[in-house]
Design a binder for these strands. Structure first.
Lengths: 111, 111
DNA sequence: CGCATATTCAACTATCAGGTTGAACATGCC
DNA sequence: GGCATGTTCAACCTGATAGTTGAATATGCG
């Protein structure tokens, strides 16, 4: 078994980390800003970010004092392909998804 | 029947369990037969199967002495769709996205 | 320089996950 | 009934995970 799938799925198994990914889906963020909405220490968030980076799910780039975190969605591809291998379900219902985007007021153009 | 993504991803994070799922993709199997190719105890495999069942990824039905295990791809489908939300779309509120998936997952046939 | 900000390190604790073994339970067969 | 088969239970060990706190390391700025 591909050990990288272990790491990616384990990274995705934590709700804090999935919430961080959802935040980064909207925009790149500094570590301190990622931590702000969570009720846990900055060090804990720093560890979560390291785990996400270790799984390749985010990248981290230090500019000055600030470490910027950015989503790396390609890392999900291998895991997604593994799941598609089960092939017994249909792909995303894109019509429903676009309706969802419109209802949420979160179309891609709005950033 | 709506196990959280935490549980599904955690179940997928273990290589033994992913290998079991691959085996079940071929055919339904009894617990003893699932355990046969692994170099670990039957009790350990039994625990792995319980975790997979708890995640909704397999079903288990006892017929006589034998407990048959069958793949249940719907839980995989939900997680797969969650992941596709990263690669193919730009900014999305994933908290809302998860609510969307929950509704979609319950009514997959509706356009 | 001296101080504030941004992030990580180190040490520690508590809980969880994955494995073992031997006993127990449930069922099928002669 | 008695025994073999199929599966789980219970207790236990070990290592990993997620969190804490306080100190340490960089960097930016007046």
């Amino acid at each position: 078994m591909d050990p990288s799938l272990d790491i990616v799925f384990a990274a995705l198994a934590d709700p804090t980390r999935r919430r961080i990914l959802s935040m980064l889906l909207e925009d790149d963020m500094a570590v301190t800003d990622v931590a702000e909405p969570f009720e846990m220490s900055l060090a804990a968030i720093s560890k979560h970010l390291a785990i996400l980076a270790g799984a390749g799910l985010i990248s981290q780039e230090k500019r000055g004092r600030v470490k910027w975190c950015a989503l790396e969605p390609d890392a999900l591809r291998e895991a997604s392909i593994w799941m598609q291998g089960f092939g017994q379900f249909e792909p995303v219902n894109l019509d429903a998804f676009e309706r969802f985007l419109r209802n949420e007021g979160l179309t891609p153009e709005e950033g």
